[in-house]
């Protein structure tokens, strides 16, 4: 449903391309992980997949960029908002602040879409439940923890019922508790709803348990693509500065297999 073909992108006023001839095709319902070192182009790829490149950041593009077969450049952010959702690193920046309770904050996007009240209420209740923050509904979104704020941000996007959810390192500014809460919410989302999810993440252990497919970036180029096990267990990940999961590391020391495990589950099997 989203397709990049030899897609390159330059931020305004820069000579170095942020994305360099990236080709990537994402099908409906897939869960895709994006890995790469800092500055490898993860965020830029997330922006491209959600249309913020080229619609928010101007700058120059080359190659093909389509959403549902339509040229991404011919759509605008207003049209894309109900279809593609983007969740960022910093929870504080994502709370619009224009509403005073969590329930109303989630409603903000729905109000902008012009939905009737009944539908808004139903969608808000559903989103609150999905990320497990029903008890925060009447609180101020500024009076809660970072992990809770990030779940509010995710709920605010989910309530808009996008067909694609893009998350750009959603847990990088959270403590371990907050991280666990966000990933628990994500796993619930994956098991209960058919939605395309694209997740850029450093925490490979989590990534490996969710993803159907992983793409690895380095220097704006697509360096590897495939199943989590194939991509994340390879030596290449060390060269790209991505690292490997703790399970792969443990297994690499103990075993002499070609295919290292990347999840706890796989590690258990391999070590038996």
């Amino acid at each position: 449903m989203i397709e990049l073909k030899k897609f390159s992108y330059w931020y305004p006023g820069t000579e170095q391309s942020a994305l360099d001839r990236v080709s990537l095709s994402i099908a409906e319902g897939e869960f895709i992980g994006i890995v790469g070192a800092n500055g490898a182009g993860k965020s830029t790829l997330c922006y491209a997949l959600s249309g913020f490149v080229p619609h928010f950041y101007n700058g120059e593009t080359e190659g093909q960029h389509t959403f549902n077969g339509q040229d991404m450049a011919s759509l605008d952010l207003g049209q894309l908002a109900g279809q593609v959702g983007l969740v960022f690193q910093n929870p504080f920046n994502q709370i619009s602040g224009a509403r005073f309770t969590v329930r109303e904050e989630i409603a903000f996007g729905l109000e902008n879409l012009g939905l009737p009240q009944n539908e808004m209420r139903a969608r808000i209740d559903e989103a609150l439940e999905l990320v497990n923050i029903q008890d925060l509904a009447e609180r101020s979104p500024f009076s809660v923890s970072g992990g809770q704020q990030q779940r509010i941000a995710i709920a605010s996007i989910l309530a808009m019922q996008p067909r694609v959810l893009v998350l750009d390192e959603p847990t990088s500014q959270l403590d371990p508790d907050g991280t666990r809460d966000v990933f628990t919410a994500l796993s619930k989302l994956v098991s209960t709803r058919k939605i395309t999810v694209i997740l850029a993440e450093h925490k490979l252990e989590w990534l490996a348990t969710f993803c159907d497919r992983v793409v690895a970036l380095g220097g704006g180029k697509l360096r590897a693509e495939g199943s989590p096990q194939a991509v994340l267990s390879s030596e290449q990940m060390l060269r790209l500065g991505v690292g490997r999961t703790q399970y792969s590391e443990a297994a690499a020391r103990l075993l002499r297999t070609k295919q290292l495990p990347v999840t706890l589950e796989q590690a258990r099997k391999a070590l038996k």
Partner: peptide, 16 residues
């Protein structure tokens, strides 16, 4: 203030 331009798929480097 650097260059702020926006193009879509210019044919090549010269067009860019």
């Amino acid at each position: 203030r650097p260059l702020a331009g926006k193009t879509r798929r210019p044919a090549g480097k010269a067009a860019k």
